[in-house]
Each structure stands twice: as structure tokens, then as C-alpha cells.
Design a protein around this nucleic acid. Sequence first.
DNA 1: TGAGTATATTACTATGTACTCATATAAAAC
DNA 2: GTTTTATATGAGTACATAGTAATATACTCA
Lengths: 93, 93
Amino acid sequence: MTEVTLGLVAERFKALGEPARLRILQALCDGERCVGELEEGTGLNQANLSRHLQVLTATGLVKRRKEGQFVHYSHADSQVMRLCEVMCGRLKN
Amino acid sequence: MTEVTLGLVAERFKALGEPARLRILQALCDGERCVGELEEGTGLNQANLSRHLQVLTATGLVKRRKEGQFVHYSHADSQVMRLCEVMCGRLKN
DNA sequence: TGAGTATATTACTATGTACTCATATAAAAC
DNA sequence: GTTTTATATGAGTACATAGTAATATACTCA
């Protein structure tokens, strides 16, 4: 694994290393949600939520789809939650 | 997923979210290594390495085995590198 | 056009943490 | 016991980032 790749992997793990962002990913498990819905679903305020969503999209963990004045967010791929499951599984040990 | 579990998962992801620690985990892929060997294998200096090893053991990602004046570190379980592999796989998209 | 709504961004504060140097602890060898 | 070697830790600095309030942008609708 090259130094660059290593940095990219770390960047993505770091994005997952924040309870607020895991809560967002969890809220997206049932499908696409707009920011307002995520505000309710996660308890985060609008500005904070927007920041975390930026991190998650920048690292390719969630997708962004703009529709009128709404922006819909969703999981970028199925692997994302797979990672969380594996990590949860590890906790039992 | 409870709030506590979520915190624990985040803590572990955060531990992986640092290039230096990924380098350590990579160096441990071939088996147990003592701190001095890891110093060579990773290019980190002794104090810094020791700190990172503390994070990795505290989060249950590596195991610590003391033998005389040497301390041997190794992967805590096979799932750890599995997580890295999955994350690497994601990078290709 | 003007008011209202949804989301993003700016500026700021507070906290966390990676890194380093120096020192402490612990075990081995003499 | 003293010295040497292996690892851990205390203290300090620099930097990153989470959170927040206020404001900006983008869109919709009357």
C-alpha cells in the first residue's frame, strides 16, 4: 500500500470516526433523506449537520442529489454500512 | 445502535483514521513485532510510536505481550485487516 | 419583485490530538 | 549496585476540527 493510498484510507476512516457522522449514516440506512429530515433524525442542528455532510460527501461516503431547493443525501455504496457492521461485530470481543 | 455503542464504534474508526497507525497495522501483517522493529518498519520515532501503540491497544485493535524488556505487539484479530481491505476496495470506485 | 424556505458558508471559540524532547520505569548484563 | 537497553510517560507546542451564531446563497411561490 503506497503512502498516498494510506492517506486516503486514513481519511475515510477518520470520517467514520465521529459519532455525529455515524448517526447520519445510520439515518440514511432506510434511503435518501434531505437535510431537514436528517436534522430531525439525528438531533444535529442545521449548520453542524451541513458540515458533517460535507465531510461525508468529500470522502465519498455519501452521495448528494439536489432537487429544487432540497438536497437529498444517500449512502454512496453498500460497502459503507458493511464496514460499520464489521466494526460492530468486533465490539463483542 | 445505542448511543454508547455508537461512541465505541466511532472511537475505533478514529483509531484507524491516522496514517501512522495504519502503517503500524501494516507492519504487523507478517506477525508479532517489538517496538524497536516497528520503529524501523514504520519510520516513526520511539516516543511517537509508543503513543500510537497505546491508542491501538486501548481500542482493542492490537495485542500487547511483554517478554523480558521487550514488548511484542500483534493484530488483535483477523477482522482488523479485513476492515482495511474493504476500505481499500472502496477506493477504486 | 419580494417574502419565505432550504441549505451552505463565514468567523469564531473550545477542545482534542499528533509530534517532540526530556525524563522515568523496567529489565538485562556486567 | 552500576550501566545499558527497551519502552512508556510528562510537558509543551502546533495544528486540526467539532460546535455555534450569524449571514449568504439558491430556490419557490405569491
